[in-house]
C-alpha cells in the first residue's frame, strides 16, 4: 500500500469516527430529553417499575460512555495524521489539552471515573441512583463541548470532516445549546 493510500485510509477512518461522535451526541441528547432533570430518590422510588424511564437511564449511561470512548479513540487516531507522538492516552489528553480541545486531563479522567462508578454500582438506594444520573447529566455539556471542539480541530487542522452529514445539523444544534448554556 502506498503512503498516499495509507494516509487516505487513515483520513477515512477518522471521518467515520467523527460521524460516530455526532451520532453519539444525537442519541445521548435524545435519551436525556426524555427525562425530567434533576432526578430525586423519591421520584425514582415512586417509578421503580417504570420500564421506559429505566431504559432511558440505562441508555444515558451507555451513550455517555460511548461518546467519551469514541471521542478518545478519534483523538488518538487523529495523531497519526497530525504527526504528533503519544505512547499513552495521558499524552494524547495532554496534547489535546494544549490544543484547547480538552479542558483539563483531570476533568476528562473525572468524567470517565464517575461514569464507571455510576455504571458499576448496583444500588437499590434510590437517592444514590438519582445522584449518579444527575452527575452524569451534569457532565454531558462538557463532553459535547469537547466533541464540538475536536470536530473543529479536525476540520481546521487536518481538513477532515465527518464521513456523512447525516447527523451534522442535529449535532450542531446540541453543541450550540450547550455552548450558550455554558
Amino acid at each position: 500500500m502506498s503512503t498516499e493510500q495509507l494516509l487516505e485510509n487513515q483520513r477515512e477512518h477518522l471521518a467515520g469516527l467523527l460521524e460516530a461522535i455526532q451520532r453519539c451526541v444525537y442519541f445521548l441528547n435524545a435519551s436525556t430529553n426524555t427525562i425530567t432533570w434533576p432526578l430525586s430518590g423519591a421520584y425514582l422510588s415512586e417509578h421503580k417499575k417504570d420500564n421506559p424511564l429505566f431504559e432511558a437511564l440505562a441508555a444515558v449511561n451507555e451513550r455517555f460512555a460511548k461518546l467519551q470512548d469514541t471521542t478518545g479513540s478519534a483523538m488518538r487516531h487523529s495523531l497519526l495524521l497530525s504527526g504528533e507522538q503519544a505512547d499513552s492516552f495521558i499524552k494524547v489528553l495532554a496534547l489535546f489539552e494544549k490544543q484547547g480541545v480538552v479542558t483539563s486531563i483531570e476533568s476528562w479522567q473525572l468524567a470517565r471515573t464517575a461514569r464507571n462508578l455510576a455504571a458499576h454500582d448496583y444500588e437499590t438506594d434510590y437517592d444514590k441512583v438519582a445522584e449518579h444520573f444527575n452527575t452524569l447529566h451534569e457532565l454531558v455539556p462538557e463532553q459535547v463541548r469537547i466533541a464540538a471542539k475536536f470536530m473543529n480541530y479536525c476540520a481546521e487542522q487536518l481538513k477532515v470532516d465527518p464521513l456523512s452529514q447525516d447527523f451534522a445539523v442535529e449535532f450542531q444544534q446540541v453543541a450550540n445549546q450547550y455552548q450558550t448554556n455554558k
Binding site: E106, L110, A114, L117
Partner: peptide, 11 residues
C-alpha cells in the same frame, strides 16, 4: 461524599 468527589479521590 458525592459521586464526583469519590471519583476525584480514586483518580
Amino acid at each position: 461524599p458525592v459521586l464526583l468527589d469519590r471519583a476525584r479521590i480514586k483518580n
